[in-house]
Each structure stands twice: as structure tokens, then as C-alpha cells.
């Protein structure tokens, strides 16, 4: 077992074969991961940040031994995800956000107990952990409630607890706050931080498409888009890479359709590096990454020429969202999943 590396991913590719509705047609190939290389150090809280369809879940599933890579190798705690799955499964756990599954006819306590037992915990330890985690997550009064009678939010919480019962050395959290209300999401983030603080030798990989969550929690972040890792660094360094450039957030009257010709787009204005636009009820939000502040005048002139006008303007410290826009020229909220195409 390597001492410093909890996860090593080398040249991993993953291709899904998808069959269309017509049985006879050849399967289409979807490349979910392309030449992914990563190292996660022991003790790190590592983030995978990318839009929907980027390949985050695919990578996590490979590391959690649910899916085989099409090529390449990956080690978790020093064990190979293809050849040493059992050894990996003793050390990991995985929780997916939005996961409301479970044996509905078992109580919260029974469900957790069952999984604790599958991990080989003895009764006493299992009971103690279940007790303390139920208290911590505010579920103690529901311990004898059948899962089927829990709200989806509480079921999600219970599943979250399940992921920590075995005190895993590597935890995979796939969009852990997906679908949770603000308060519950805060509980989850607080728990994650505390758990990692208390256990310096534990490792966590967390995927998210909420940049604020990645920024707040993660020691390091890999930005992933269309199956490729396009940057990997600490949140500070990622944001610092934008320091020489200037980031503005504009609200403007609706811009309408993106012009066909390149020279009519905002990108064509002198001094503009990157632009992303999002339609929000009744107006358009524009993220501008400029070489210098001086370029702003040109953009405002351009907007007026297109019959729009400025509603508000903010100069901001660059966020991870801006880093993403700078790198791929698209907002994080754009769904790049190929499923529906």
C-alpha cells in the first residue's frame, strides 16, 4: 500500500455502448471518460467539479468497483479496481445524492445495522456508531420508523449515514447535496468537514456541479468536462489563474438568439477573452472575462448596438464558475450529457 496516494488514476478511458431503439443498428459509442489521470493524496478532500454529463459519476463508479474502465488502471488505497475489488470494497463506501433507495419495510435502525453487518462490524460497534450518527444527523427520533414512511429528504440523510457507518478509509460522495433543502445541505456539508477534520488519514472524493460547494469544502479540485480533466489544483490556485484577467458579471436586457456570424458576437469585441450567457427570467446574465478593464466600454457599446442595455454590473473576485467559463467557454450549468442527443 502506498503511503501518500489514496487514489491513483492512470490513462483511464470509459466508453459506453448505447443501442438505439432499432435493435439491428450498431451500438453507438459514448466516451464518458477520456485519458483521465489523477492522484488523490491520503487525507485529502478532493472535488470533481463539472457540468451534468461530464463523467463525474462514471469516474466514481469505476473507483467504487461498480464499473470497469475500458482501458487504463486505477488504484484505490493501493488496490487495483479490476483485480482487487474485494480489498477495495472493505475500505470504501459510496453515497449518491438523491439516493432514496433502501429496504422500505426495514426500520432506519435495521437498515443501517444490516449494512454495518455486511461490512463485518460487530453488533456493539455497529450500535454505537448508528446511535451517534443518528443523533448527529438529527434522525434519532426516527430510528424505529420504517424507511417507507420517511420523507425523501430523511431517506437521503439515512443513506448518507450508511456511507459512514463502516468508518471507511476512502469515501465517495456523488453529488451529496443534490435535491436537499438548504438546511439539510448545510448539515451535510458541516458533517463532511467535521468528519474529515477528526480523521486526518481519511480520504474523500466528492463530485458536484455546485461550484460554491467545491470551493467551500475541497482541498483540491479537478475540473472535468466532456470526460476530460481540464485543470486540477487548489481552489485558490485555480482562481488565481484568472488574476491577470478581469471578471465582470452583467445583467442586461434580453439578448435574444446568439448571432450566427462570429463577428457579431460579444467574443468579437476587442479585449474579450471569454463570455458565457445565461437566460434568466426576463433578462440575460453575462459573465465576461476581459484582458483588461478597458475592454468593458467596447462590450457596452456592442450591447447597445444589439438593442440591449445594461441593467447591472458587478466586478467580482473570480469564482470557480469563472474559471470554468474561462477554460471551456461555457457555463457550468449547461448540461453536456449525451443521453438525449
Amino acid at each position: 500500500m502506498r503511503d501518500d496516494a489514496a487514489i491513483v488514476v492512470q490513462d483511464v478511458n470509459r466508453i459506453y455502448k448505447v443501442r438505439g431503439p432499432k435493435r439491428r443498428s450498431d451500438p453507438q459509442e459514448v466516451t464518458a471518460l477520456a485519458d483521465v489521470n489523477l492522484d488523490v493524496k491520503r487525507g485529502e478532500l478532493f472535488g470533481l467539479l463539472g457540468p451534468n454529463g461530464a463523467g463525474k459519476t462514471t469516474l466514481i463508479k469505476i473507483l467504487a468497483t461498480l464499473l470497469l474502465p475500458s482501458s487504463g488502471t486505477a488504484l484505490v488505497d493501493g488496490f487495483d479496481v479490476v483485480k482487487e475489488q474485494k480489498a477495495i470494497r472493505r475500505r470504501i463506501s459510496m453515497v449518491s445524492g438523491g439516493e432514496t433507495s433502501g429496504y422500505g419495510l426495514l426500520t432506519v435502525e435495521e437498515n443501517l445495522w444490516m449494512f454495518a453487518r455486511l461490512y463485518g462490524l460487530d453488533n456493539k460497534t455497529a450500535k454505537e456508531r448508528i446511535d451517534s450518527m443518528l443523533k448527529l444527523m438529527g434522525l434519532a427520533d426516527r430510528r424505529r420508523t420504517k424507511i417507507a414512511d420517511l420523507s425523501t429528504g430523511l431517506r437521503q440523510k439515512m443513506n448518507f449515514i450508511r456511507g459512514f457507518i463502516s468508518d471507511p478509509s476512502v469515501v465517495f460522495l456523488d453529488e451529496p447535496t443534490l435535491g436537499l433543502d438548504v438546511g439539510a445541505a448545510r448539515d451535510v456539508r458541516a458533517f463532511v468537514e467535521e468528519w474529515m477534520d477528526d480523521r486526518p488519514d481519511r480520504t474523500m472524493v466528492l463530485t458536484t456541479h455546485y461550484m460554491a460547494e467545491a470551493d467551500e469544502l475541497c482541498d483540491r479540485i479537478a475540473i472535468i468536462d466532456r470526460g476530460r480533466i481540464i485543470a486540477c489544483d487548489t481552489p485558490e490556485n485555480l482562481k488565481r489563474s484568472l488574476k491577470e484577467e478581469t471578471v465582470f458579471h452583467l445583467k442586461v436586457a434580453p439578448l435574444g438568439k446568439r448571432p450566427e456570424a462570429n463577428e457579431h458576437r460579444i467574443e468579437a469585441v476587442h479585449g474579450v477573452r471569454r463570455v458565457s450567457t445565461t437566460e434568466v427570467n426576463g433578462h440575460t446574465e453575462v459573465t465576461l472575462i476581459l484582458e483588461t478593464e478597458e475592454a468593458l466600454a467596447g462590450v457596452i457599446g456592442h450591447l447597445e448596438a444589439r438593442g440591449s442595455n445594461l441593467l447591472s454590473l458587478e466586478k467580482q473576485e473570480p469564482s470557480l464558475e469563472d474559471v470554468f467559463v474561462r477554460m471551456v467557454g461555457r457555463s457550468l450549468s449547461v448540461d453536456t450529457s449525451q443521453r438525449d442527443e
Binding site: 461498480l66 470494497r89 433507495s101 429496504y103 449494512f115 455486511l118 461490512y119 443513506n159 450508511r162
Partner: peptide, 13 residues
């Protein structure tokens, strides 16, 4: 039905 395949098959069962 229960959708527990992921949970079961990431455990050392």
C-alpha cells in the same frame, strides 16, 4: 424495486 444494487455491490459482501 429497492434500488440497492449500488449499496450492496460497493460493500464487501
Amino acid at each position: 424495486h429497492y434500488r440497492t444494487m449500488k449499496q450492496l455491490h460497493t460493500s464487501p459482501m
